[in-house]
Design a protein around this nucleic acid. Structure first.
Lengths: 242, 242
DNA sequence: CGCGCAATTGATTGATGTCAATTGGAGTGG
DNA sequence: CCACTCCAATTGACATCAATCAATTGCGCG
């Protein structure tokens, strides 16, 4: 399998078995690799992409911008996430995809994806699944934004990221690299930068997390999950026929 | 076409053309009709449905419940919405679907849906599209929750509902029926009931809306849209090949 | 060393939540 | 037709949470 698609296959296979034919369909997808710097836009709001984009390394986010200059991040994505399958069907982007860290991405033409799905409807369903899981994550974000306190919300986000990074092998022990700015965090959880900073300090002083030099550590996973009311079911990390 | 599927076809055809074969595939879907009262759960959190559910009449919402009894609604759905396509792939529900008004729904077995998609990948993509549009709406909700003021958020929601109801023919002039409780609204926009009430009054006293006896009226569509920063692009009401 | 961005802090203002009534309207039984 | 009841809508007073403004500190890098 082409190196580009290792993380993709790994994340698909967390949810269902891939047949050799399906692996080969993935392997043969044409991919145009590109590198981005932190702050770059991989996909631009209101554009009409003809390719979809798979994250290979780094951290990106979906962003919507408001007339007054405010920004909301509506999702984060990591290696192995096929970030932009939406464009395949939506045609017109309702949001941008921005790099929060330097990152690599592979762009795959829509036409190739559609051909692969017509060859294997099951593979198509697995890609569909990945957009549906994005939806589940978005629902969790909506619930956090609407009904959780700042510190519980942040704790929930950290739990989510830990599990997702673990899935693609980006966790070491209790820690993961998280070279993200507090401004970015605040645009995820819908708070001001100042309040975000104080919320992080809350979690730190409760001993729930450590976060220094771009590394987040969760000393006691279960304690953080209890505090965050975190139940990973919605991430659908169950391997079963779909 | 079976009466049940009229609104469904109408909402699919707002996005792309259906071939006669596709219409017939839809027409032949087996459906089990059920009626629900306000407050009933059509689909229960943590359950594992083997059918997906199409709304025929009434208003329903996706709901997540928190340990402390709080509730967040993460989406609203109306006639013609295939609410629970998610379960087809997710298997395990991460949320409930609750009736906000009395409503009718048709339940279609997953196996029949999958068969239809294997017969017509394009039809499959249109159903996929409908979940992707749900995602776009959820992103708009995230942005509203995170970065819009209470009154702009509410105005945005009203604009969204107007457009969506219009699509399925449920708007009369500038008005639509909206037999929904302020408690439900507050669980959509993540505010307390009291503050939601005051926010509605804000919009009323600005002359942006009228809302009495379960009927919402928008005297000046454009003025409300400007206030709400509402751009309907994300609802993807463009007819084009997908 | 010094620049520049990110993180942190303090003080204050503004938005929203909470508590506790009160009002209004639709349906029901007398 | 009139109480009566129930639930939704509304109001006022007050407490809390979070935004904003304005510095200041800390850290990585040339």
């Amino acid at each position: 399998m082409t190196a580009e698609f290792v993380a993709l296959a790994r994340s698909l296979e967390r949810r269902d078995r891939l047949s050799p034919e399906e692996r080969s369909l993935i392997e043969q997808l044409p991919a145009r690799k590109r590198r981005f710097d932190s702050g770059d836009e991989l996909v631009v709001e209101h554009s009409e992409p003809s390719e979809s984009c798979l994250i290979l390394t780094g951290i990106v986010a979906r962003a919507q911008f408001l007339p007054d200059g405010k920004r909301q991040l509506t999702a984060v994505h990591i290696a192995g996430d096929f970030v932009d399958l939406h464009a395949l069907l939506l045609k017109l982007m309702d949001h941008s995809v921005v790099a929060l860290t330097p990152c690599d991405a592979a762009f795959v033409p829509h036409s190739s994806l559609i051909a692969a799905f017509e060859a294997s409807p099951h593979l198509g369903r697995l890609f569909w699944l990945s957009t549906v899981i994005d939806g589940a994550i978005e629902r969790a974000w909506v619930t956090s934004l609407g009904r959780r306190s700042a510190s519980v919300h942040l704790a929930h986000l950290i739990c989510e990221l830990f599990v997702r990074l673990e899935t693609v092998g980006l966790v070491r022990g209790n820690s993961f690299d998280f070279p993200i700015t507090q401004t970015d965090i605040s645009d995820m959880i819908g708070l001001s930068l100042v309040h975000t900073n104080r919320t992080i300090q809350d979690l730190r002083s409760s001993g729930l997390i450590t976060w220094e030099r771009k590394v987040v550590t969760i000393p006691d996973q279960q304690r953080l999950r209890d505090f965050a009311e975190f139940d990973p079911t919605y991430l659908n990390l169950i391997n079963r026929p779909r």
